[in-house]
Amino acid sequence: MILEDAPPVKLKGVGDGFWVTLDPSRSEELLKNEITKLFERLKHLAINARVVIDVGDAPGGDDLVNALGGFLKKQFDVGVVTRPPEKRVIPVERIRQRDLSRGWTQHRSDVLMLRGRVRSGQNIEAKKHLIITGDVNPGAQIIAGGDVLVMGRLLGQVHAGRPGNDESIVLALDFRPTQVKIGEHVAAGLGDTTNGQVEFASVVNGAILVQDYLKSNPFGRIPWPEVI
């Protein structure tokens, strides 16, 4: 009788990447097959994603991770593949150097960038981040899985981080939306507060807060350009 134990490969999303936990006692062939099944489902989300492969403390773990990492890069265009940081710390500097030396020209992105005016009755939905160079009129609705950046007037309804991503922000050069949702949070009537500054909304202590972008730049603390 076959033991009903844990599946040989498990996958979960963490931050901007994926965490793959696998059973190093299984054959490399079987692990590749299982990994392929899981990554095929991710489709383009796998592209350039950071992947952590967790094989526990088993001997020969490095070799296995290297082999599978190479396989993932070749088959699915993933980004950096590492072992879990506690087990073997790769200096952050080295990851960054690698990111830089890969060159950005190869990077494929899920960012949807549109140019022009979004009018009343129009709905725009982006899987991940959404950038609109233009105005968003009252009565228009824009939705994104990640951040929403409007290089113009934002007067319509906006939902960033759908579903459930409270880390997302909404930014506009002229921030006067009729309604803002971020993740599961809602706020209305944020408009008419602008005094010519660029503003952004984010979730702070469980509520949507609108702030001057240049005074409290949410990205200013990130010390290095990262792919999103």
Binding site: R119, S120, G121, Q122, N137, P138, G139
Partner: peptide, 14 residues
């Protein structure tokens, strides 16, 4: 007025 503009905007899109 705001509602007329809203409807005009929709029609312009169409």
């Amino acid at each position: 007025d705001v509602s007329s503009i809203r409807d005009a905007d929709r029609v312009i899109g169409l």
